[in-house]
Nucleic acid binder design. Structure first.
Length: 297
DNA sequence: CTAGGGGTAAAT
DNA sequence: ATTTACCCCTAG
């Protein structure tokens, strides 16, 4: 019943993204009728578009709408995973009545890169690329737009901006992005408008770096919300453990990012981000005011 | 028609 | 074993 198979071509994907950028996600019929894309997408149905977009969105960032069951079943219960992380951060979590033992909360610093079976996250780069291509602004997207796009569907630390800046800079440095004035765009197609390039040689590739299907696994809002909902029914101690877990995962992400970029500057930004998040988590915990953690409205 | 919830099966 | 493309169904 699953029909044979026809992989989506790059053109089709591009047309779909462009159509979404022009008409908005969900106007499948409209996109399909648009003469600009109808030629390319003529073999696809509106449902195909929808499904394709769903697949893309699902694999793109962690868990879109589907797959909560899939991943929830697989990914859950990885609790006994407290590898002894060196480096103590804010070593103390104390509530008024109960003293929760300080977990070895570690902040990334140096060599925990290829250490443990850290089965996570490294793909912020591609998330950024995705943001740009989805926004599809002809002149490129600026940092704020990209950040907004990402924050729009993913949870991000409060000072996520710093992280983003570092990443953007790095991507520009390695030639994955072109920066024109304050705007970023992907390397492939239109290179006509550029004023000049950066000083650093800039590899500037011709081929499309488009089809990389790696994306960052950030937590979605709903997942964070779910975790927090769980926390509410926990004792302070249990909540502390859960929060520590969350912090540890966030730190793992930061560590991976650090490893990926290999830039002192980026590393500092990552560390900052991780620390800030950890502190925020601790504060909320202390105050028992969980709603503070709900970043989004 | 769209958003989703399911599912099957081909490719990888 | 996971990803991906496509299908089906229902509610709105």
């Amino acid at each position: 019943m699953g029909a044979p198979k026809q992989k989506w071509t790059a053109d089709e994907e591009a047309a779909l993204k462009a159509g979404i950028a022009k008409h908005g996600a969900g106007k499948w019929r409209t996109i399909l009728k648009d003469p600009e894309f109808s030629s390319i997408l003529s073999l696809r149905s509106n449902v195909d578009l929808k499904d394709k977009w769903r697949n893309m969105s699902v694999t793109a960032h962690g868990w879109g709408s589907r797959e909560k069951a899939r991943l929830a079943l697989k990914r859950s219960r990885q609790f006994p995973k407290h590898d002894d992380n060196p480096l103590a951060l804010t070593t103390v979590v104390q509530s008024d009545e109960e003293i929760v033992d300080a977990k070895p909360l570690a902040i990334s610093s140096g060599t925990l890169s290829t250490a443990g079976p850290k089965r996570s996250i490294k793909r912020l780069d591609n998330l950024i690329l995705e943001a740009i291509s989805t926004l599809n602004e002809p002149t490129g997207s600026n940092k704020t737009a990209i950040g907004t796009y990402i924050e729009d569907q993913c949870w991000a630390p409060l000072n996520f901006k710093r992280l983003l800046s570092a990443k953007l800079k790095h991507l520009t440095a390695i030639g994955k992005l072109i920066k024109v004035n304050r705007k970023y765009r992907t390397t492939p197609t239109s290179v006509f408008l550029e004023g000049r390039r950066n000083s650093s040689g800039l590899p500037l590739i011709e081929g499309r770096r488009d089809s990389e299907k790696d994306y960052m696994q950030i937590f979605t809002r709903s997942q964070v919300d779910a975790e927090l909902a769980k926390m509410r029914h926990m004792t302070a101690k249990e909540a502390a453990v859960a929060a520590a877990q969350a912090v540890a995962e966030a730190e793992a992400a930061m560590a991976e990012a650090e490893e990926a970029t290999r830039q002192a500057e980026a590393a500092e930004a990552d560390a900052e981000a991780a620390q800030a998040f950890a502190e925020a988590a601790m504060m909320t915990l202390n105050g028992r005011n969980f709603s503070n953690l709900m970043v989004h409205a």
